[in-house]
Design a binder for these strands. Structure first.
Length: 482
DNA sequence: TGAAATGTTGGGGCG
DNA sequence: ACGCCCCAACATTTC
């Protein structure tokens, strides 16, 4: 009689290019596909609200795909170690296969599982597939991790990316003691802030593949010119699919390489897109070597940065009520759709840290809860990048001017008007700076500043100076005495 | 994957 | 014709 192997799904909700699945199904084993909702082990980083919404739909999709192949996805909730032991015992499974994760709590959990399951005679094996290159396989000549993106990415590109694996599973276990997905209450109620999200998103492996093909067929050619324009649909919008593992970076990579062979003139744009996959890799590698990144400054002198905690400022930023249209548009897009255009992410993040002097962790936490693509590695590294405390970070004095950024990347104010409809009637000239609009222009646009749309929460010039002064403080504190 | 301040240059208006 | 000033336009530096 053949043995049973648990395929423990985590952040890899797909069936294709899944090394753990291939390994599990080898040697004539029956595969028992299991997802565990574990809110205990991740500590502060249990899944945020938007991710849970996504997870619900992604699990529906995965369950349907497995069912179509004759299996049943088992759902269980609780401490993963306990559940795995239970399910092994109840089902007679003798091995557990999974894809590696790289969050500090997750790698600890993997080591622990290897020991405790091993003590019970159960084989625990973990596989790659979530990254192009495993952390540790891309190192400087000195043997250490890269701390700067460009040389890191150059080194990555010197290595082969393994081709994606085809789906392979011959027989599924028929053990079927599963929770009802609905009982997990992953979807929001009262209010249902995700009411229209299925109009924007198709979670699941099929949705991810469609998105990738659509992007490469129709969008990528204008990617180089237009990806910074938030009003234009010129980005891949793959981040959430990638985060949940519905598509692997190797699948993306292979398709990109093929695209460049077929249509060489798209090479520049495709390369730019691939470099974004590179930033994801970079973040994961950094998180692996510097596990404190999600909660403490990579550049240590930033530990003393004089942030000015202010709940009211934070709240206005979260709600998109700062009085700076491009910032408010971004924050409202995030709330309405679970995502925000990358260019605008940089602007709102810079605004929170530099104009409002709020700790980058406050922004990181908000994004963690509201983004469908919330990812510990990318989120932590990117917030530190903006704040200036991260690896290869933007220098602290690089302070975005929210008006200039708006005028540069949203010339016609289309994006602002979409997400901040109260400004819709304002002429282009003032749409990024309504406080400069003369009385009659405001009247014609039916706006009373301070009532229909807020006055700017801070004066740009003063806020910029305050941020530079704050930076000066840690520079001085960091100076070595002579 | 900035922005502002400061410096330089050169054309044109003007006395 | 000349010098002077103004100020774009661009370059450099500073934060």
């Amino acid at each position: 009689m053949s043995e049973t192997a648990i395929l423990w799904f985590r952040q890899d909700l797909r069936l294709n290019d899944l090394p753990a699945l291939q390994a599990a199904s080898r040697d004539d084993r029956k595969v028992l596909p299991l997802y565990i909702l574990d809110d205990e082990t991740p500590g502060d980083w249990s899944m945020g609200g938007a991710s849970r919404w996504w997870l619900h739909h992604s699990l529906c999709s995965l369950a349907a795909d497995i069912e179509a192949l004759g299996g049943q996805l088992i759902l269980r909730r609780g401490d993963a170690k306990k559940i795995l032991q239970e399910v092994c015992e109840a089902s007679g499974a003798t091995s557990v296969f999974c894809s590696r994760r790289y969050e500090p709590w997750a790698s600890e959990q993997e080591l622990l599982l290897h020991e405790t399951l091993g003590d019970h005679g159960i084989e625990f094996k973990r596989y790659g597939g979530t990254l192009l290159h495993e952390p540790g396989s891309v190192l400087t000549l000195g043997g250490g991790p890269f701390k700067v993106f460009t040389p890191f990415w150059r080194a990555c590109q010197k290595q082969e990316v393994a081709p994606p694996l085809p789906m392979q599973c011959d027989s599924w276990s028929n053990w079927s003691k599963s929770d009802e997905l609905a009982s997990w209450n992953l979807l929001p109620t009262s209010p249902d802030w995700a009411e229209y999200w299925l109009d924007h998103w198709t979670p699941g492996e099929n949705g991810a593949q469609e998105r990738l093909h659509g992007f490469l067929d129709e969008t990528v050619s204008s990617y180089a010119d237009q990806r910074d324009l938030p009003a234009v649909d010129a980005t891949s919008r793959l981040s959430a699919h990638l985060h949940h593992g519905e598509i692997s970076p190797r699948q993306i990579w292979a398709m990109c390489e093929q695209k460049k062979l077929e249509l060489p003139h798209t090479a520049t744009a495709v390369n730019k897109f691939q470099a974004e996959i590179g930033w994801r890799e970079f973040s994961y590698h950094l998180l692996h070597f510097f596990p404190a990144i999600p909660h403490s400054a990579f550049k240590e002198n930033f530990a003393e940065f004089p942030w000015q905690p202010d709940e009211e400022r934070l709240r206005r930023w979260q709600r998109g009520e700062t009085g700076y249209p491009i910032v408010d548009a971004g924050m409202r897009e995030l709330w309405a759709t679970g995502i925000m255009h990358n260019r605008v992410r940089m602007v709102v993040a810079s605004f929170l840290c530099k104009h409002l002097l709020q700790h980058w962790r406050k922004g990181e936490e908000w994004f963690w809860d509201t983004l469908v693509d919330a990812d510990l590695a990318s989120n932590g590294c990117s917030w530190q990048w903006v704040a200036g405390s991260g690896a290869d970070a933007a220098p602290y004095f690089r302070i975005f001017n929210p008006v200039t950024q708006g005028e540069k990347f949203d010339k016609q104010g289309e994006y602002v008007r979409r997400w901040v409809p109260e400004l819709a009637k304002l002429p282009n000239k003032y749409v990024h700076k309504p406080w400069e609009a003369p009385e009659d222009a405001l009247a014609q646009a039916e706006i009373k500043l301070g009532t229909d749309y807020p006055e700017p929460i801070v004066d740009h010039r003063e806020a910029r100076q305050a941020a530079l002064d704050a930076y000066q403080q840690i520079r001085l504190s960091n100076a070595t005495p002579t």
